[in-house]
Write a protein that binds this DNA or RNA. Structure first.
Length: 569
RNA sequence: GCCCUUGUAGUUCAAUGGAUAGAACGAGGCUCUUCUAAGGCCUUGAUGUAGGUUCGAUUCCUACCAAGGGCACCA
């Protein structure tokens, strides 16, 4: 449609004899200004030496001579040209949504592209905290949006199975043997290991003797020569990894690849050694990369310590090579982390682009903001981080409380509560642009009013109830006999595919989240002002078709945010 | 000190260089004998400061101010 309007304007300009300059066709922010608008008169006015308003008027007159049936009217206002689409156009767009169903909203922006997305990255032996929840929500949504744009996406998770944090956890487990109990659920055992880690981390800072022992355990872990440590390591690793899987299941993520730091360490070290003298140089006994030599905005970082151990930077080199080994034709490798890692990822990327120039444009680092807390410094109090699991449980319990007056089996109740809870959390993360920090407010993240995940789900279930009633009363959807007035809901629904494309192009899920709130609001308003299923209403069939269209778009949109759409709640 | 990110209603967020800067929460009022009131309707308020580019700047540029992150052997 956009192209069609553009061509109409081009023809009109030619007929008037005004030279064409670059102009745009866009959806105006406010529906009052039409369905499409163009700035053509303003950008061309200067060359044509006419007042923009006059030029807009002239173009309008020319356009009016030959309007296609999809356009109801053209208006010249404040120098803009506003196009109003016709009833026929909207009826057809509703028909299109119903025909495409699940496929509606897909685009071919990335057709045939192979993309790997790495996200979440929790560390075994450490708690899965809400920061991981945030990366997971962002990563899963971006993965789905890319898939919806035609890409073949592989999901990857990179986990720190070696390092000081493991030694701290193991020290904590030795320190308090109760925490080693193998009784109870996986979640319970993993929780104990998390507590052991917190304890170890605290003692490492405050207790000299503990610090020494933890460093000792760390060395033994590296060479793997202590049976007692190896045994507890294996148990702890298995338990925490399994606990992570349970969380992924609730969150709706399934990874295709798992990369472990212990494996990347030696691979990365090899890469650094192979390029020593060329890319890397020695400095104070360590092997470093002086990125500032290549770009003054970057800085020097250590890749291999003076102790001879590879750092995270070196491991990242190994990781990137491994990722491209899974598929040498991969078009893009995306890594999603918090923005505190931005600067050194740039250094790593610089080193990589020198070693592997062919990969330079095939790597992308997307950063999201940090989780901050409102009303309390939870993060600064050691061992008092909000774990993903506790948050999920709290939210689920709140939902259950709210559901007491509904008639569901306990099984149904459990599932719905989980889906609604995850929606509340994910939406509170994804509703805003991912770059900025998120001020995490527990009360708000589980709020079910207004601008929230459950609000979207609730609108969807309402639509479902309407459709069930329509089936019972045997009224079928139809697009032919539509009311003359074009509803706001229709004007929002047909924009969905463009919103998805923009989200994919910018790697920003919040455009979808915001659009879903708009259509939910429009639907709820429509629902409140109309009896949709009614034998006495000649437009009932059209309204039912519209309700179907809404439910498809809402379900598809929620799915792109990684949120389930329950039929009832 | 240097580099990166961010400054928009009381609060949390929107706004591909365009029209009267949008929502939500909060506060106040109305609204269920109708398809789920987790809803709808109405009222209330903002672009950090100073310049610049432009027909037009929340958006781009410069300086300043403020917040957060990073800057050699942690990740």
């Amino acid at each position: 449609m956009k192209e069609k309007i553009k061509n109409l304007i081009k023809d009109a300009l030619e007929k008037i004899g005004v030279e064409e300059t670059d102009f745009i066709i866009e959806h105006p922010d406010d529906l009052k200004n039409g369905d499409f608008s163009s700035n053509v008169a303003m950008v061309c006015a200067k060359n044509a030496k006419i007042n923009p308003k006059e030029l807009a008027e002239k173009i309008k007159i020319e356009l009016d001579k030959n309007l296609p049936e999809e356009i109801a009217k053209v208006e010249a206002a404040a120098g803009f040209l506003n196009f109003y689409l016709s009833r026929k156009y909207f009826s057809k767009s509703i028909e299109e949504i119903l025909n495409k169903g699940k496929e509606y909203g897909k685009n071919e922006l990335l057709l045939g592209k192979k993309i790997m997305v790495e996200y979440t990255d929790p560390n075994p032996f450490k708690p899965f905290h809400i920061g991981h929840l945030m990366t997971n929500a962002v990563g899963e949504s971006i993965a789905r949006i890319l898939e919806h744009s035609g890409a073949e996406v592989a999901r990857a998770n990179y986990q720190g199975d070696v390092g000081l944090h493991v030694a701290k956890a193991i020290y904590g487990l030795f320190d308090n043997e109760k925490l080693q109990s193998k009784a109870g659920s996986i979640a319970l055992q993993a929780g104990n290991i998390g507590r052991a880690y917190s304890r170890g981390a605290e003692l490492y800072e405050t207790d000299e003797k503990a610090k020494k022992e933890i460093d000792e355990i760390n060395k033994k872990l590296y060479v793997r020569n202590d049976d007692k440590i190896n045994e507890i390591y294996k148990w702890g690793f298995d338990v925490t990894m399994e606990a992570f899987e349970d969380i992924y299941k609730i969150l709706g993520t399934k990874f295709d690849f798992y990369f472990l730091e212990s494996v990347m360490a030696s691979l990365g070290e090899e890469v650094v050694r192979a390029n020593a003298g060329k890319v890397f140089e020695e400095s104070d006994g360590a092997v470093v990369f002086k990125a500032d030599k290549h770009d003054p905005k970057l800085h020097t970082r250590v890749f291999i310590t003076s102790q001879g151990l590879p750092t995270y930077e070196a491991k990242e080199l190994g990781l990137t090579e491994e990722k491209f080994k899974t598929d040498p034709d991969m078009d893009l490798s995306i890594t999603i982390t918090a923005n505190e890692q931005m600067d050194y990822m740039r250094v790593v990327a610089k080193a990589l682009s020198i070693i592997h120039p062919e990969l330079e444009n095939r790597m992308k680092h997307i950063t999201h903001g940090m989780m901050r807390f409102v009303g309390g410094k939870m993060s600064s109090r050691k061992g008092n981080v909000v774990t993903g699991e506790s948050l999920l449980n709290d939210v689920r319990d709140m939902v259950l409380e709210k559901m007491t007056d509904r008639n569901f089996s306990s099984e149904e109740q459990e599932q719905i509560a989980n889906e609604v809870g995850v929606a509340a959390i994910k939406y509170s993360i994804l509703k805003q642009s991912i770059g900025g920090d998120i001020i995490y407010d527990f009360e708000k993240s589980i709020s079910f009013d207004g601008d929230s995940g459950p609000y979207l789900q609730y609108s969807y279930t309402r639509a479902n109830s309407v459709l069930e009633k329509a089936q019972k009363e045997n009224i079928l959807p139809d697009f032919e006999n539509a009311p003359e007035e074009i509803l706001e809901l229709e004007k929002l629904l047909y924009k969905f595919p463009r919103i998805v494309a923009r989200s994919a192009f910018e790697y920003e899920p919040h455009y979808i989240a915001n659009h879903l709130v708009e259509i939910a609001r429009a639907f709820n308003s429509f629902y409140g002002n109309n009896l949709i299923v009614s034998k006495d209403d000649q437009y009932s069939s059209y309204k039912i078709a519209l309700t179907y269209a809404f439910s498809f778009v809402m379900k598809n949109g929620l799915s792109l945010l990684g949120i389930e759409a329950p039929r009832k709640m």
